[in-house]
């Protein structure tokens, strides 16, 4: 599986053309699209995540990796549909995400959205300064699996509880998972306000979503 290995290494090294060519040649030689995603690209993204966590890679690299991954996925998408792969239906979560009311910090939340999309999830980004009503509306409209909330400031993080309370009051909480993040939050805070999970960065957010969706690496 030379092409698979090449695609993985090239993605880790952020070599866009090499990734796209390797993906194409793997498809041509008959490798199932699901295997390219699972056996190569996802592994590369995990490796990139590790590089990010020990600081070797930084934000620009993360954005670039996500962008290459997305482009590769566009090539694979039609084949994945044909294969009606187990992988695809199992892996994909629908996530509504936003920075809570009173807070206009965009960068962390956007990074999380980019990484979740790169990992194959569907993300509906509500933007910043999002009031509880807008979260409620989005949940009613899109029926997501997960709602993600971000806050940079300690003062605005408290609003996450308001959103959770409101979702509960409307009876929308039942099957919905809620995850939070942002500089002002901690795992204790997440527990305290009744969220289902917390992540310190975009890489961990992807792992968190995977574990909440019951996706494990084989």
């Amino acid at each position: 599986m030379l092409a698979l290995e090449k695609a993985r290494i090239c993605l880790v090294n952020l070599e866009r053309n090499c990734v796209l060519e390797s993906v194409k040649s793997a498809l041509e030689s008959g490798v199932p699209a699901s295997e390219i995603v699972l056996g190569s690209l996802s592994k590369a993204m995990e490796e990139i995540g590790r590089l990010y966590e020990n600081g070797d890679y930084f934000i620009a690299e993360l954005i670039e990796a996500a962008s290459i991954f997305k482009e590769a996925m566009r090539i694979l998408e039609p084949r994945l549909k044909e294969e009606a792969s187990r992988l695809k239906t199992a892996r994909r979560a629908r996530i509504v995400i936003g920075t809570v009311k009173g807070d206009v910090h965009d960068i962390g939340k956007t990074l999380v959205a980019i990484m979740l999309q790169a990992a194959g999830h569907e993300v509906i980004d509500l933007g910043v300064d999002v009031p509880a009503e807008k979260f409620v509306e989005a949940v009613e409209k899109y029926h997501p699996d997960i709602v993600g909330m971000s806050a940079l400031l300690t003062t605005t993080a408290r609003y996450m509880k308001t959103v959770i309370d409101e979702l509960e009051r409307r009876g929308l909480r039942r099957s919905l998972k809620i995850i939070i993040g942002g500089a002002a939050t901690t795992s204790e805070f997440a527990r305290e306000i009744g969220a289902d999970g917390w992540a310190p960065n975009a890489i961990e957010a992807v792992k968190l979503v995977d574990s909440l969706m019951g996706i494990r690496d084989e």
Partner: peptide
């Protein structure tokens, strides 16, 4: 009053 300083 501090409220106005706490959020956007």
């Amino acid at each position: 009053d501090l409220k106005g300083l706490a959020e956007y």
